[in-house]
Design a protein around this nucleic acid. Structure first.
Lengths: 200, 200
DNA sequence: CCAGTTTTGTACAATGATGAACAAAATGGG
DNA sequence: CCCATTTTGTTCATCATTGTACAAAACTGG
């Protein structure tokens, strides 16, 4: 009942995601976003309530398609470490392969917004915590599998997070996938995560 | 001769740096910067020519006071690896100790501007290249000193750059200096840079 | 103390942005 | 076929921002 929307909401969120990914959050005004979406500001406010609200949806959508989402799908049955390394390699490839060198939307948003926007800082911080927890969980899983022994699991998880952030920044400037991966492989090797037998 | 400026240029650049560091480049309008500096936009344009121009000066000033500037001062006489590790530790401390959690101005600018602003992308990219070269030089120096043996110097330099970027992003969310340093120490150890004898 | 030089203050016109308010349009259930 | 509901289009007043242009002010060397 009522008049139906003249646009597809999910697609709109994806479009908005790309706009914000490319230009940044603050640079993406309601006016600009509305124009890109081909709707009026009126419809924008009606559909999304506010720009911040839309951005929360965008982050959700992003997390479902980011190259590190695969970390969440590694289960007990797998060779955990190999799978983790494969994800890191994929991140290198995806970031280097992006013709616009946009890096990671989450990292970009983190550096842009944390400390400036009250509400969004919160969401982004929580996302990082979740990622850290995920790394810790994976390390624990690998330990249980007898794949490695670790002295300080929390510190190792943080080191992996540093590495992931690092690639995502570096890839804005270093566009060669192989160089990126070689350096990441060294770091993973050093942490005991990458094994020569993986041959990635 | 002529009317003297009513403000100190160097101090103005430092003030602008802090404003941009806190709020980001695009969010720091000429109007806002002028107001912070306590001068009119007229004086702003007269003194700095353009916002972009000022930003270049800001980056210069920043590079002279950033915690990793110390990497440039490590010479032949030193224990290179120990000095490098000390710099990383200092970065952890400085970033975690910043009450505003601003992270690194260069990293923030990198994620904000690379790919968006033609001219500034260039400056920032060059700065990263310079940092990479510096890491490579330091590794070579350490090798010559017999402090370590490396299979792939370029990849190791890139790994160090990843790590440095990583800390600067992570520190926006993780504010505990000790946690940061523990994770960084692990990474440095893995790369063969940190030795237990350093006891940092 | 004057003339020349440089900085400052004010004004301008154009554009972008905001969020709300209200009218118009489009649909489906009754 | 009409009414209730929801989306969409238009308008509003206000404020930010830009770069330039020109006049006023301040200083200094001669």
């Amino acid at each position: 009942m009522g008049r139906p929307k003249a646009f597809d909401r999910k697609e709109a969120v994806r479009t908005a995601m790309n706009e914000i990914w490319l230009n940044g959050y603050e640079a993406s005004s309601v006016k600009a976003l509305s124009e890109t979406l081909g709707i009026t500001r009126s419809s924008f406010y009606n559909s999304f309530g506010s720009r911040e609200n839309l951005f929360r949806e965008v982050l959700q959508t992003y997390s479902e398609q980011s190259p590190d989402r695969a970390l969440g799908k590694i289960g007990k049955g797998n060779e955990v470490l190999r799978a983790v390394c494969q994800v890191f390699k994929t991140v290198c490839e995806v970031r280097a392969g992006d013709p616009d060198h946009r890096g990671c939307l989450a990292v970009n948003s983190l550096t842009e917004l944390v400390g400036k926007d009250e509400g969004l800082s919160c969401v982004l911080t929580e996302a990082v915590r979740a990622s850290l927890d995920r790394f810790e969980r994976l390390l624990l899983l690998a330990e249980e599998n007898g794949e490695l022994i670790i002295e300080n699991r929390q510190a190792t998880a943080l080191a992996l997070q540093n590495l992931l952030f690092g690639i995502n920044v570096t890839s804005k400037v270093v566009h060669d996938s192989e160089s990126l991966w070689q350096s990441v492989k060294l770091s993973l090797k050093g942490l005991g995560i990458y094994k020569l037998s993986f041959d990635l």
